[in-house]
C-alpha cells in the first residue's frame, strides 16, 4: 500500500475501567489476621523441604504438599538487596527516589519486599545490614500488606 504523504495519521484512543477483586486465600488469611490482630509475622513450614514461607501459604511450591504448620518468625532480619527507584508507576520521575528492600526475616527461608524507611541515598545502606519491621499502630491496621510501614535499619 502507498504511504500517505503529508496526511495526518489516524489514531483512535480507547480504554476500559479495569478493576478486580483478589482473594487472599487460606494462607493469606492466616498471615493477615496475625498481622492485624497480634502484629506478628506468620508463615507456614514445609518440614520435608526445610522451608518456612512468609507470608504463609497453603501449599509448598517445591514438593507440592499441603502446608498446615504455622510458624511465627522474627520481626528482624537481614537485608538481601535494595534499590532506590526514581520512578512512579505512571513512569514519572520522582522528586525523591523511593527505597525498596528485599529482606530475609530471621526464621524465614523466603524474602519479603517492602519499603526501606528513613534512608535517602544508597551510601547509607549495605547488603547484609540488619533491619527490623516497622508496623502501623494496631488501631490503623486493616489486614493488608500496608499494615507494615516498611523496614528500617536496625
Amino acid at each position: 500500500m502507498k504511504t500517505p504523504k503529508n496526511v495526518e495519521t489516524h489514531v483512535w484512543r480507547g480504554g476500559i475501567p479495569l478493576e478486580s477483586r483478589y482473594t487472599a486465600g487460606l494462607g493469606g488469611q492466616i498471615f493477615f489476621q496475625a498481622l492485624k490482630e497480634r502484629g506478628e509475622l506468620v508463615g507456614t513450614r514445609c518440614a520435608a523441604c526445610k522451608q518456612v514461607y512468609v507470608p504463609a501459604r497453603a501449599f509448598c511450591e517445591r514438593c507440592f504438599a499441603e502446608l498446615t504448620e504455622e510458624v511465627k518468625v522474627s520481626p528482624e532480619g537481614t537485608l538481601v538487596s535494595f534499590t532506590f527507584s526514581a520512578y512512579d508507576r505512571d513512569a514519572n520521575r520522582l522528586a525523591e527516589p523511593v527505597a525498596l528492600a528485599l529482606v530475609k526475616l530471621d526464621g524465614a527461608t523466603t524474602t519479603m519486599l517492602h519499603r526501606l524507611l528513613r534512608v535517602t541515598s544508597p551510601e547509607q545502606v549495605r547488603i547484609g545490614a540488619r533491619v527490623k519491621v516497622v508496623l502501623k499502630p494496631k488501631a490503623k491496621r486493616t489486614g493488608s500488606i500496608l499494615d507494615i510501614e516498611g523496614f528500617q535499619l536496625a
Partner: peptide, 29 residues
C-alpha cells in the same frame, strides 16, 4: 508501566506502589 504493575502480585506486592522496573534494580544490586 501500569501494564507491568498489573502483573505484580496484587495482594503482597502491588499495594506498595512501586514502578515495576525497580525489580530489575533490586535484582541487579
Amino acid at each position: 508501566d501500569w501494564i507491568l504493575d498489573y502483573a505484580v502480585d496484587p495482594i503482597f506486592n502491588r499495594p506498595l506502589g512501586f514502578n515495576p522496573h525497580a525489580l530489575a534494580g533490586l535484582e541487579m544490586n
